[in-house]
Design a protein around this nucleic acid. Sequence first.
DNA 1: TGTACATCAGTGAACGCGCGTTCACTGATGTAC
DNA 2: TGTACATCAGTGAACGCGCGTTCACTGATGTAC
Lengths: 211, 211
Amino acid sequence: MSESTARQSYHHGDLRHALLEAGIELAREGGPDAVVLREATRRVGVSPNAAYRHFADRDALLSAVSDASLALLATRIDALFDAIPAGSAELVARAQLRAVGTGYVAFALDEPGLFRTAFVAENLDRSSEASKSGRSGRSPLVLLTAALDEFVASGIMPPARRPQAEFLAWSSVHGFALLLIDGPLRALPREQADAVTQRVIDMVEAGFTAP
Amino acid sequence: MSESTARQSYHHGDLRHALLEAGIELAREGGPDAVVLREATRRVGVSPNAAYRHFADRDALLSAVSDASLALLATRIDALFDAIPAGSAELVARAQLRAVGTGYVAFALDEPGLFRTAFVAENLDRSSEASKSGRSGRSPLVLLTAALDEFVASGIMPPARRPQAEFLAWSSVHGFALLLIDGPLRALPREQADAVTQRVIDMVEAGFTAP
DNA sequence: TGTACATCAGTGAACGCGCGTTCACTGATGTAC
DNA sequence: TGTACATCAGTGAACGCGCGTTCACTGATGTAC
């Protein structure tokens, strides 16, 4: 977009933002390894070292891109979450669990590069820390936690199963996303992938609520 | 081991094997990206281009290392599988599911570098293809499949849930392994990790067998 | 309103690095007679 | 058993590549008076 039109002035105006956008585009195309500092500056039309006015080093750029990817994932989940119709606390909680899982996998399928970038090693941590700190109040983990709390409150999940349940649910959905984008289910047509996603969530839900 | 003693003759004797071992060691230390052709030759004490007598290129070496990693994972699971005591078909099948999951996660924790190397993108496929082709009759996927077939046969799992069930179970355990080695559960002490692993398997089992 | 000057945000050129890979070669091995 | 020679499995040197990063610089901007 704005990258393609040669800029007029010596100063860019918002180079940090432009580099971040370019980095996101690179991640979208090729995952975290494709976030190459020189290529980002090339796309923005600026000399390579200009990046160092805005990012300490290549890792700082990658981190920013990773954070942005995580935010896009969160947005996707939020949208499904907000579309849940009113109902009994139990039904809403079940729908919330489903929304988180469905949005998570859908994002992975639609944006595999960003998905992999969001979960670059050192950032996986941060995604859970950030949510604990409350900085991003609507992070997926927070939404998931709320849903599971309601599972217990409404009596469909035994309290003994509650500890760490977020991570059990997360594991299933995360692993499934990876089998779909990189793994043996890579060739599965989209509609079948969506159908099996629902079965992953069924399994998780049954695992939590089974007598 | 034998790499450390300078070799006597001009010919190495078993350079292919030595390079593979060096590659496995590199993968063990740093995952797939650490499998660097020049470093492997350095460790074996041979000139870099010597590797090309035995591997077409760097990717061929990485593939071989990945295959070897997968084989080590399979061996680990096999050991648990073979230790299952005799019993009713149902109990044995439940124990088999548990053995596959437990061995899988244990390997990931003990050998995170090899684990990540085993599931390098293009090889995740191969792990399921290889098992279908029957070349490796005791691959984890084959063992898992057998266990799940017995779930249905012994009546504890509705046949309607059987299709794709391998991948649902695999997803959960694979995702959990990644949360443990790279992710938010990285800091979990080993014994807690082992305990939560059992709960992951509980969840999967309940999801399959819930009424 | 105009000017001097500090600060900011870029440029251009170059660096060292380690990698994968190729070239022409040579020492060692095995086989035919 | 010995020798000639093809083949095999190494060596040594070099390549180009693209990267991240640093250096000394210069053009643009904003602020004080």
